[in-house]
Nucleic acid binder design. Structure first.
Lengths: 105, 105
DNA sequence: GCTCACTATCGTATATTTACGATTAACGAT
DNA sequence: ATCGTTAATCGTAAATATACGATAGTGAGC
């Protein structure tokens, strides 16, 4: 049991669910805010601002990267992360569309 | 290991993450759309429209209810589910606020 | 070459989520 | 009171997520 049935749904639902999943952890929301509010971008600096180990933060960063909300450029031994405005905009529109399709408000 | 550290974050992040988690499955997004698009509301009718067993759908409904996106009124042996417009509006505003705080678009 | 600083990945443990069948509960109708 | 219908919950199995220490990899500087 418990085989994933997510692929039995429509693309729209799957895509939105994946986006939502990426936002479904406080650490990942916090990371987005850190990247926006401060002009910090290196992994280590993000680690310093979170109550989590480096490996864990790296995992969260990877998930945000996988759905395209952030991008990371490797600069030698460091990695500079930044928001991906295009995809954030697109995500925003997806959510807006969902909410307007389920509620006239 | 793997004890939850979510409570080490701010209320804003936790609340948004919980909302996002509720939307982080295609079935739950589909349920919201079904409740909006059709004038169907009983559990059984929702089950008919999803490729999932009754018990599974009931679980998804409970999660949506827990974060307040829907509400269910028991009418005898049946249960009539419907959207909770106030909370959906509030959720929409939370997401909008997040996106505008991480992106000027 | 070697070392240092930084980050990704591996391995692993635990927690949570997803999914279903079976059972229980609640009520209307007979 | 029993039966049929509907939905919630229990029990359970498997998958996924969370978290960390340890290790591997990458490039700058010596």
């Amino acid at each position: 049991m418990a085989q994933n049935k997510s692929d039995l749904f429509g693309n729209e639902e799957i895509q939105l669910a994946n986006l939502a999943k990426a936002l479904a952890h406080p650490a990942r929301i916090k990371i987005l805010k850190i990247l926006m509010d401060t002009n910090v971008c290196m992994c280590g600096q993000i680690v310093d601002r979170l109550p989590l180990a480096q490996a864990t933060v790296s995992q969260h960063l990877r998930e945000l990267k996988q759905v395209g909300l952030i991008q990371g450029e490797i600069e030698g031994p460091k990695t500079c992360y930044c928001l991906n405005p295009d995809n954030i905009k697109s995500a925003k529109e997806h959510f807006t569309q969902l909410f307007s399709s389920i509620c006239n408000c």
